[in-house]
């Protein structure tokens, strides 16, 4: 059974339908990358699938249960969500922010989980620093740590690597991949197609609210799809034991 199962999902932003009949499965031990041009509906799809945005038609199921019928506390224990928006209201210490991933644990247990998650992203030495005093990249890592501190089996991250330096981007995606390798599930939206191709087990391409391609990276990100959806000229090249996607403007 898929951990997240999205069937014929429709969702709106205001009067405009931005997600139109999407079907998508996120099984255990799999990292699925959702890619698509700006305005394709990726964030709305992710929010609706997580039960955080109204679904106008269709459904999203978490471990077989319709998402809107899952108790919100239960949902938060099984599904961790990282929004694209990284603005924090208050300059709390990084550890306190990371510990927000475990709101239903006792404060010492939550802090312990926060500390472990900060260490996972190599920023445990910033634990006592106010998030307002951190760089954008450091703050993004704190928020990723908060996501991992949820210890939820399904992690959903909306543009987690935007604004990160290359090393941090790779670290972030490695951690997400590790989570799926360890039995978890990951749904991540990405703009960087080469990173999606490299890290995801499966890639789903969303265009104008519809999935136009879904499968292993090399199939989903075929030169034809990339030409049609992104207007890119692309090819897969051999690089050592890996096959990498090379894309340029057509």
């Amino acid at each position: 059974m898929s951990r997240l199962s999205i069937r014929n999902l429709h969702a709106r932003q205001g009067a405009r339908e931005v997600v139109s009949g999407v079907n998508l499965e996120v099984p255990p031990r799999e990292m699925v990358a959702l890619v698509g041009p700006n305005g394709a509906g990726k964030s709305t799809l992710m929010l609706a699938a997580a039960g955080l945005h109204r679904i106008t038609r269709g459904e999203s199921r978490l471990d077989g249960e319709v998402i809107h019928k899952v108790d919100v506390v239960q949902r938060s224990l099984r599904l961790g969500y990282l929004p694209q928006e990284r603005r924090l209201a208050w300059g709390m210490p990084a550890l306190e922010v990371a510990a927000l991933g475990a709101p239903f644990s006792t404060p010492p247990a939550a802090r312990e989980r926060g500390r472990e998650a900060l260490a996972l992203f190599g920023i445990e030495d910033l634990a006592a620093t106010s998030v307002f005093a951190l760089s954008g990249g450091e703050r993004a890592r704190v928020l990723l740590a908060r996501l991992f501190a949820t210890q939820a089996s399904l992690l959903m991250a909306d543009e987690p690597v935007a604004g990160l330096d290359p090393d941090a981007q790779l670290m972030c995606l490695e951690r997400l991949r590790d989570h799926s390798r360890a039995g978890g599930s990951v749904l991540v939206t990405l703009h960087d197609l080469t990173l999606a191709a490299r890290f995801a087990d499966r890639v789903a391409v969303l265009d104008q609210g519809r999935i136009v391609s879904d499968g292993p990276p090399e199939d989903a990100l075929s030169p034809r799809v990339l030409k049609t959806v992104f207007g890119l000229k692309a090819q897969w090249i051999e690089a050592g034991d890996q096959r990498l996607l090379l894309a340029e403007r057509a």
Binding site: Y81, M92, G101, L143, T150
Partner: peptide
């Protein structure tokens, strides 16, 4: 402090 959507998700 995380914002309304992240808080709801939590």
């Amino acid at each position: 402090t995380l914002g309304e959507v992240a808080a709801e998700a939590s």
